[in-house]
Nucleic acid binder design. Structure first.
Lengths: 219, 219
DNA sequence: CCGCGCTTCTGAACATTGTTCAGAAAAGTA
DNA sequence: TACTTTTCTGAACAATGTTCAGAAGCGCGG
């Protein structure tokens, strides 16, 4: 009975076609521009067919969100190998920002959409956080790096989760404002990111001597 | 001829009615829920009438944006009197965050709407910034405070605009993430704001001795 | 008080959206 | 070939923002 297998394969193929069409639209024009009829046109099926593969438009967004998050993770590959934990932490910030600036549509879908696709990454099911959620696992990488900094004695002891969330929200602030209205920011975004990461690190440092030489001049 | 005056008054009154109805809807349910027909129902006029007072839905959003920004400014009243410039800078950050957290719908309308109402505040007409724009004037207050810190010798010399934008984007990051998906942040938002402001200030400081005693423990 | 003209207003329409569902079409099975 | 199951779609529904021809109201000159 290879028939059921073939059918399943065809079904998966069509699902992937839908996703591919949706991906293209979202990456080109943003999630708001994603329309069931547009997808239908692209895959040469009736819009109603899409509902046999996805519950609704938001479910497609959720699927794309997963992909986008993988994409974000892939930006972190390089930093994982940085030995110095403080440099690694700064690297995470800079690469995170680079992902957002280079992939604005994906970043908006992930972190700037009201419908809270964020909750797809951070399980809020029953209020308790599941450490296996992709978002939680990625954030754990940040927390671990912070802890490594503390262990190495380069930053003052403190709650690594709090420090990690400071780092995240901080960089997110730059990226999201830059994506919403770049002209509102006069400074070059890259400089903003780099200087903020350095200043933050300096603020956390046990002794300014450790980082003073690395801090970029802000003039 | 008091007639033309009365007509003008009535016209202005209706405009204000529209704005009031829209304001209520936006504050209650957010800008996405703002519907021409809903406004029409509220003011007991046909939806078409609204177009005699506003170019379109977005224009109403722009008008509400102006109000919301005034509201934000009003949160800064208390901090302007703080003598110590570094404390004033931190106060700006904390009050800014408080505005966002206490008025989420307004904050979203101002700084988290794609249609870039932000550009209403920061003139991007002809690419050049007009220092008279409300947003620009408010940001100037931040820059002035940063400059005062530098002059007082409590933070290291640097570009006050860059430092100001770091401060702004930083706090915006916390607020916007908290408003998009509060459950993604484990730490209490107020603590996040306070600690980040302190850490940032410490990172800018000329000597850690100046602020070390004031820095909240991050444990 | 009447009738003309201007302002103010509205009903109906248009195009577009997500979503549903009865039934057509196709595919598989016997 | 006849029956069943799966796959698909046309048409419809209820919203949305926006437009516009014409109705209604109002003020002014007679």
């Amino acid at each position: 009975m290879g028939i059921t297998e073939r059918k399943e394969r065809q079904r998966a193929e069509l699902r992937e076609q839908i996703l591919a069409a949706a991906r293209k639209i979202v990456l080109d024009e943003g999630f708001d521009a994603l329309t069931m009829r547009k997808i239908g046109d692209a895959i040469e099926y009736s819009p109603a067919t899409i509902y046999l593969h996805f519950e609704n438009r938001e479910a497609i967004g959720r699927a794309l969100c997963g992909e986008a998050f993988e994409h974000l993770i892939s930006y972190m590959g390089a930093v994982a190998q940085i030995e110095d934990p403080l440099e690694r932490l700064k690297g995470i910030g800079r690469h995170y920002a680079r992902f957002g600036l280079e992939n604005p549509k994906e970043y908006k879908l992930l972190f700037m959409t009201d419908t809270a696709f964020l909750e797809t990454l951070f399980g809020e099911i029953s209020g308790t956080k599941d450490p296996d959620d992709p978002g939680e696992r990625a954030f754990q990488f940040v927390v671990d790096t912070v802890q490594a900094c503390i262990d190495a004695g380069v930053i003052r002891p403190g709650d690594p989760v709090l420090i990690g969330e400071m780092a995240w929200t901080m960089v997110h602030g730059i990226v999201s404002l830059a994506l919403t209205c770049r002209s509102a920011l006069e400074s070059p975004v890259e400089e903003l990111v780099a200087t903020l990461c350095d200043t933050f690190a300096r603020g956390l440092a046990t002794s300014p001597a450790h980082v003073a030489s690395e801090v970029r001049s802000t003039t």
